[in-house]
Design a protein around this nucleic acid. Sequence first.
DNA 1: ATGCCTAGTGATACTAGA
Length: 256
Amino acid sequence: MKIATYNVNGVNGHLPVLLKWLQTSSPDVACLQELKAPDEKFPLAAIEAAGYHAIWHGQKSWNGVAILSKTPIIERQRGLPGDPDDTHSRYIEAEVNGLVIGCLYLPNGNPAPGPKFDYKMTWFQRLIDHASILYDMGKPVILTGDYNVIPTEHDVYKPERWVDDALFRPETRAAFGRLMAQGWTDVLRTLYPDETIYTFWDYFRNAFGRNAGLRIDHFLLNQPLRKKIKAAGVDKEVRGWEKTSDHGPVWIELKL
DNA sequence: ATGCCTAGTGATACTAGA
């Protein structure tokens, strides 16, 4: 079973790329982030025509997450617990083929320090609290998406330029460390401990051509899935397509 | 240190991204 995560940076603006990628990579499940569209503008017809069921949590202009699957999706919840006043659409959770899948878009948090960074850290703590419950629920769980976290200096082309950035600040990495301490497996880094792996290249300065990237989109698995990992990778070529997202799709294969 | 580029909104420069 192939599961992917992809920050599409505009589900309508980049719909041709999304459809082309679905056709070529053909994941069984795809978690999408940054839809940048309200619920009523989700391109359901095109996604169904591509062979996928879908659930989504949209928002005008910003954020927005979705789960696509070739098999039926049972929605578990939308939004993270812990703040009923949170207006950002950044989390959706479902069960597919007996797998619990959380699809998340963690706040960017720049500029830091400041209110946006405070929001990032508060949201992060809510995620950690929820992840703790998921980890121990006795089911196989996948927690994936755009974490907006550079876990180590190995995951960024020039670490010294990012030390004050919200994606790499000590508080951010410490929060990711607290999440990982629950026992989660970071699939890409576990399979490739020493490789340079990037999932994002910004649009500036020919970052993709120079491979000046970041690894910020992650796949975390709980203990029941740890021994089921078959393969994983980044569909890097998609980042080179015309009118593409600044992220590349990340995928894993599980033997279930 | 800054802007480099891009999407969305709405019709103009702005916010936001990372």
